[in-house]
Design a protein around this nucleic acid. Structure first.
Lengths: 197, 197
DNA sequence: CGAGTGACAGATATTGAAATCTGTCACTCG
DNA sequence: CGAGTGACAGATTTCAATATCTGTCACTCG
């Protein structure tokens, strides 16, 4: 990247550069000074756009999480497909997306795992959005009679909790075991069976 | 404790003292020298009974894990009770046992969590024993027609995986949320429903 | 003998001084 | 004016010297 630029210094540019710096140096060594250096400005300028290093890192985290929400929203609001098959597709898409992120660039994934741990508020909000999507799929199933759930939000939460081993980054190391796909399928099948009308 | 003792130095006594030292100093500061000092012997003597510090810590871990297995075995092999209710009781006993351990003495629990992390082989064996117990309960249910499972060991594994949030120590911090019991019950109900004939 | 010792080498952990970083603010300059 | 600066104080991290620990082994002594 060009070390200096005539372009105006926007939050957007700062976020992009922060991602780049995190990618290069990792979560412990990446500093605000590094970001400023990469942008060709003084670190004081970065503080004009973000009130603290923590806020900057949180904004990067938020951006990263938003991508999965958008991807899964495609499945959630697809016009075709039964609720049970949507549920299965949604859970598999979530698992596969995480698994590929963790496998393709383990260091970057570890970096984001650290960021996630220090921004539990942001993560919680993101999880709530995912669970809300699950709730919409389950509600569709309840409406067309394919699923049964006395309390849809609670059922959505239960499905999410029960599949935690396949989306919680704390388990990332296990996602490359030769039996993991069979285990994922067993849990998914059990959960969907438990939800059927 | 008496710093010196005329009693012979047995593996048993060393293990007890090691537990004591771990309890007092925590997993990072507890040393073999500390254990020897507490026993009133030289650290060389400890190495007559355990080949390494790692082996000593592993033996302590093993001992600790064995207790839950014994407690849950009571439920597993109880003569009375339907398989679904046994399953529920077993999962609840596991959750409550862990929750109380974590709540009653958080530091000691954290110490054992560190020990667990450095002895993944021992932990895996312990988990296999727990899953084997679940398998026996499910097999009972299949035999009496209350449960359906094409592959009993796989179903046992799936039940254990699906309830991970309520027994994996990595989630201990969440076990004191005001909604955790409702969440546990929702997942348990979902899983048992998924297993019903 | 053989359970226990303690001095030793190499590995690991602790400590405190120096370097770097975070966050602020009075200032510059287009 | 107002985006950007850079020197500064206090907090945090790094680094190298120092201390402690792990694991071995030739030895003691009941």
């Amino acid at each position: 990247m060009p070390p200096a630029a005539a372009e105006p210094l926007t939050p957007e540019r700062i976020l992009e550069t922060t991602e780049e710096v995190l990618r290069r140096f990792g979560p412990t060594k990446a500093t605000v000074v590094d970001v400023a250096r990469a942008l060709g400005v003084s670190h004081g300028s970065v503080y004009r756009h973000f009130p603290s290093k923590a806020a900057l890192r949180e904004a990067v985290t938020d951006r990263w999480l938003a991508k999965s929400v958008v991807m899964l929203e495609q499945i959630t609001s697809a016009p075709a497909g039964s609720a049970p098959s949507k549920l299965e597709a949604w859970l598999e898409a979530l698992f596969e997306a995480k698994r590929h992120k963790a496998g393709d660039d383990p260091e970057l994934f570890a970096t984001y795992t650290v960021l996630l741990a220090e921004n539990s508020g942001t993560v919680e909000q993101h999880l709530a959005e995912l669970i809300e999507q699950l709730g919409r799929i389950i509600a569709q199933g309840v409406a067309d009679g394919s699923l049964a759930a006395p309390d849809v939000p609670a059922a959505a939460r239960a499905v999410f909790d029960a599949t935690g081993r396949f989306h919680d980054p704390q388990y990332a190391a296990e996602w490359f075991s030769p039996t993991i796909v069979a285990e994922f399928e067993a849990v998914t099948a059990l959960v969907i069976r438990g939800l059927r009308a």
